[in-house]
Amino acid sequence: MKRILLVLLALMLLLTPMLSAAAEAVTYDKTEYHLVFIPKLVHEWYEDVKAGIDTAVAELAQQGITVTYSWDPPTDAVVTDQIAKIEGAVATNPDAVSIAVIDASATNNVINELVASGVKMCTFDCDAPDSNRYYYCGHAGNYEDGFYMGETLAKACDYTGEVAILAGTLSAGNHQDRVKGFKAAIEQYADMTIVAEQADNDSVETALDVMEGWISAYPDLKGVIGVNAASPIGASRAVTDAGKVGKILIVGMAENQEAMEYVKSGTILCTLKQQVPTYGYNSVFNMLLIADGKEPTVKVDEIPAIYVTSENVDQFLTK
């Protein structure tokens, strides 16, 4: 068995440089490209995507390929605003367009029409899997993430007690999937009860207010999930102020520095860190391939997320 493992390891070591060399061997038809990226909204989270794009652009510049790009998020995550942005961007005749889809059901037709008219449409972060887009790069395992967080919280609560859900924005598909995953995990345990579920509309302030209400209404509350970036922060503030750190455990999807500090202090039990710069980095190289009429390296580029706990949080703290 050991011998087989050693052979596999040796093969991997041999293949890795070959794969890298293959990646480097990709040639592009033009020396200048213009790409368009349309995130869901103006948000710090997407700045990391932009950092990944900048890295890829810099690497391509060293190869003599000039890539310019437009970064044009709507101020708020309003699907009609995003569609207007897409249509405006296409008018500039870009080589490829990638969008973080706010609402796939509303955007599928737009993507399909543009693809049919020859526009190279891609998606990142949030996908429109039923559309004809050429390429997607992101982390689509929202149900699995919710389930994992449910399991983590249940284990920390000894599989008993009351928990609650800060459900994010009710119309957001990724939030809905995380809630479903969390519920499926908790419902496995007969001694666990989901006592409350409220929307927080991606607002730290609303999450704080809701959490304070729950602290009053459910004195035996043992855990909370926040299914977006804002709600674990608001919940952490409320739990800290109420002196309930360690008594009410928080899991969620917040990944900024404030969240990492709450993980470090023990207020947040577990959060999820997506490898966001990779979304931008991989998108650039694949969008160039697609612009040249070639196939992307992979049509659905799933980038795994990292679960952050007190054990590995130090590597994500930037102080």
Binding site: A167, L170, V195, A196, E197, Q198, D209, G213, S216, A217
Partner: peptide, 15 residues
């Protein structure tokens, strides 16, 4: 009213 909705656990869809 907002606090009552949280405390009474009114469905978020009805909030």
């Amino acid at each position: 009213i907002s606090n009552a909705i949280v405390i009474l656990n009114v469905s978020p869809y009805w909030e």
